[in-house]
């Protein structure tokens, strides 16, 4: 059954210049060009999406939520990444 289906693509839209692409959902399409068209027709009907990315769902590599602790927590220990932990004198601007 699934062999007949058109592959699934994930759709990312940048709705205004200056913003990042955000995940909007998915579409099925037979090829990349169709995926772009379908994404435009489905997810930018009301507004002009400035830029559309489509990616085959099978190409996306994701972190495993079950490993959240090992994957993410260490950063909370390494506090030197956070800018608020540095004391900059008030006279210094733009920092």
């Amino acid at each position: 059954m699934t062999k007949q289906e058109w592959p699934l693509y994930e759709v990312f839209i940048r709705s205004r210049s200056g913003l990042s692409h955000r995940h909007a959902g998915s579409v099925h399409a037979a090829d990349d060009q169709m995926a772009l068209n379908n994404a435009r027709d489905t997810y930018t009907r009301r507004t002009e999406g400035v830029s559309i990315w489509v990616v085959r769902s099978s190409q996306i590599v994701a972190s495993d939520p079950a490993e959240t602790a090992a994957f993410f927590e260490p950063a909370e220990d390494k506090i030197y990444r956070h800018p608020t932990f540095y004391d900059i004198p008030d006279e210094v601007e733009n920092l």
Partner: peptide, 11 residues
């Protein structure tokens, strides 16, 4: 023939 094509046709 496919849902995505419905949208295009309606557009």
């Amino acid at each position: 023939p496919e849902l995505e094509e419905e949208l295009a046709n309606a557009n």
